[in-house]
Design a binder for these strands. Structure first.
Length: 271
DNA sequence: ATGGGCACCTGGCTGC
DNA sequence: TGCAGCCAGGTGCCCA
C-alpha cells in the first residue's frame, strides 16, 4: 500500500483519536509479521499513555510515556480507529484498546508490515538509524540530489527509490515525480544536470505534498484511519496508465519493468 | 561502495 | 468451473 503520503495521512487520522489516551488492553492475534511481534509487546504497551504520533520515512512513531511503538504498513497494511465493539475481520493482527472506548486496529493481509516497541530513542533503532533525509524537509534539495548522483550509473527510477538517498518515494510517486520533472526513468543518475536535479527534487516535493493534501492514493486496498480511500489516484499522470494518452501531450503512456517494479512514463514528455 | 536479485505473504485477476 | 500463473503502495539482506 502505502508510500509516504498514505503513511502521513494515517498519522494525521489516528493522532487526534489516540493522543492523551491510555492503553487499557492489547490484543495480538497474529505475531508473524515481517518480524515476529516480540513476547514483551503486550506488557510494554499495557497502561501506557500516548504522547504524540510522529512519522519518519514510512514508519509511524507512536510515542508513549514509556517508549515508542514503531509501525510499518508494508505493502498492504492499514491502521484504523474504530469503536472497540467492532468485531475484527480476517488479517486484523493486533489491537490497542484505549480508555476512550476506541481501538487502534492494524490490518495487513500480506504481513509485510511490522510493529516494534522500543524504550530507547526510536531514531537510534536499527531500522531508522541509517535512513536518508525526509523529502519534504530542508535537507533535501536539488544540490543534495545532484551531489549524490555524481558517478552513479543506476537508473533514475531506482535512484529516487533508494532509501539511503531519500526516504518515502515508492513505486507510484517515483514514476509520477520523474514525469513532472520531464526525466526518463531509465536515464543514468550521473547524467543529471544541476538544473535537472533541481527540477527532480522539486517534483518529488510537489507530488508528495499534493498527494498528502488529497489523502494519498488508493489503488486497491489502502484506507485511512476512518476507513476511507485516498483520492490522489485521479491526479496520477502515468502510474497504471499504460497505453492511455498522456494528460499533457496525448502520446500513449509506456510501461516497462525496472528492477522488478512496474515503471510508467511518457516517451514524449520525458527525456 | 554499488548494483542487482531474492525473499517474505495473501488475494485478485486473467487466460487456458 | 477450476486452477495455474502473474501481479500488487516495501525493504532488508545476500551476492558478485
Amino acid at each position: 500500500m502505502p508510500e509516504l503520503p498514505e503513511v502521513e495521512t494515517t498519522r494525521r487520522g489516528i493522532a487526534p483519536a489516540i493522543a492523551g489516551r491510555r492503553v487499557c488492553d492489547v490484543l495480538v492475534r497474529e505475531r508473524r509479521l515481517r518480524w515476529p511481534i516480540e513476547a514483551g509487546f503486550e506488557s510494554a504497551l499495557l497502561g501506557a499513555t500516548v504522547r504524540a504520533v510522529e512519522r519518519r520515512a514510512k514508519y509511524l512513531l507512536i510515542r508513549f510515556d514509556t517508549g515508542t511503538l514503531l509501525v510499518h504498513l508494508g505493502m498492504s497494511g492499514s491502521l484504523r480507529v474504530l469503536d472497540a465493539a467492532v468485531a475484527p475481520r480476517p488479517h486484523d493482527h493486533w489491537d490497542l484498546v484505549f480508555d476512550s472506548g476506541r481501538v487502534l486496529r492494524f490490518h495487513d493481509p500480506r504481513r509485510f508490515g511490522s510493529a516494534h516497541f522500543t524504550a530507547a530513542d526510536p531514531l537510534d533503532h536499527p531500522l531508522l538509524r541509517r535512513l536518508a533525509p525526509e523529502p519534504l524537509g530542508g535537507d533535501f534539495d536539488g544540490g543534495y540530489l545532484h551531489r549524490a548522483s555524481r558517478g552513479r550509473g543506476v537508473a533514475l527510477k531506482a535512484f529516487v527509490m533508494n532509501s539511503r538517498l531519500v526516504v518515502g518515494v515508492g513505486n507510484i510517486y517515483a514514476s509520477e515525480a520523474l514525469f513532472r520533472a520531464g526525466l526518463a526513468p531509465r536515464r543514468a543518475a550521473r547524467r543529471l544536470s544541476r538544473a535537472q536535479a533541481q527540477a527532480l527534487a522539486q517534483a518529488i516535493k510537489s507530488v508528495l505534498g499534493e498527494a498528502i493534501e488529497t489523502g494519498g492514493t488508493t489503488l486497491r486496498d489502502y484506507v485511512n484511519a476512518d476507513g476511507a480511500p485516498g483520492y490522489f489516484r485521479q491526479k496520477l499522470y502515468v502510474y497504471e496508465r499504460a497505453g492511455e494518452p498522456c494528460r499533457v501531450c496525448g502520446t500513449a503512456v509506456r510501461h516497462a519493468v525496472q528492477a522488478r517494479r512496474s515503471t510508467y512514463w511518457c516517451p514524449h514528455c520525458q527525456r
